[in-house]
């Protein structure tokens, strides 16, 4: 069995390049995971934001879910952002659970419509000493935590970020902000060394350098 020393991002649909870009800014060489065969050397996997119904459909059709669960049982950590957190939850209000790897109850699209999407700036003491910018887009709410799960951030009547020994769930999108704090936190949780804290200025459009139409070397 190969050593688990790399971080992957599930690359089926959604905000994949944004996570890849943040991980690269930490000096890592992340894997874009599209196949069941790519989990063997992963210390950690990020389930990106996107549409959870689309993601779970593709995970099942291409028989990726069983391999993902196998790797998880073998020690691979998982971080779900937004739709990714929904996939992780053991209990989804009004729906069947999907991967069901984390003992949380979650309500999909709990804030309403796109016009109710918003930004906030808060301190998450366990993750960073500085205020972190959070972006909520048609976000879910974590409503209940199992006994092994701890809240990292509570807002009003819901939990916005939670973790247990093997999973991290955030209902917001750190990959859409300039902050690397949550990515650094997850990478360290996976036991992988962060080689640099890039001083590269990350912005809303940083991911676009990975999706250029012109020659990127120019």
């Amino acid at each position: 069995m190969a050593t688990r020393n790399r971080i992957g991002v599930l690359d089926l649909q959604g905000g994949v390049l944004e996570h890849i870009n943040h991980l690269q800014a930490l000096g890592l060489n992340p894997v874009r995971v599209k196949e069941a065969s790519q989990f063997d050397d992963l210390a950690g996997l990020i389930l990106p934001g996107g549409e959870s119904t689309c993601l779970i459909r593709l995970l099942n059709i291409f028989e990726i879910a069983p391999k993902l669960k196998e790797a998880f049982a073998d020690g691979m950590k998982i971080w779900g952002t937004c739709a990714g957190a929904i996939l992780l939850a053991k209990n989804i209000e009004g729906n069947n659970s999907q991967l069901g790897l984390m003992d949380i109850s979650i309500a999909r699209n709990a804030f309403g419509f796109q016009v109710d999407s918003f930004n906030a700036k808060v301190k998450v003491p366990k993750v960073s000493n500085d205020e972190i910018e959070l972006t909520f887009i048609r976000a879910p709410k974590i409503k209940e935590l199992g006994t092994n799960v701890k809240a990292l951030l509570e807002i009003d009547d819901y939990v916005a970020a939670a973790e247990d020994e093997n999973c991290l769930a955030t209902v917001f999108h750190p990959e859409l902000t300039s902050s690397l704090a949550f990515h650094k936190y997850f990478v360290q949780k996976c036991g992988v060394k962060v080689s640099t804290d890039s001083d590269e200025h990350l912005s809303r459009t940083s991911w676009m350098k990975l999706a250029r139409i012109t020659n990127p070397s120019k």
């Binding site: 089926l12 937004c82 796109q114 887009i137 048609r138 999108h173 991911w207």
Partner: peptide, 11 residues
């Protein structure tokens, strides 16, 4: 936020 919603539709 609106442009970011579209990002989540990618792929």
């Amino acid at each position: 936020l609106n442009a970011q919603l579209a990002q989540m539709l990618k792929g």
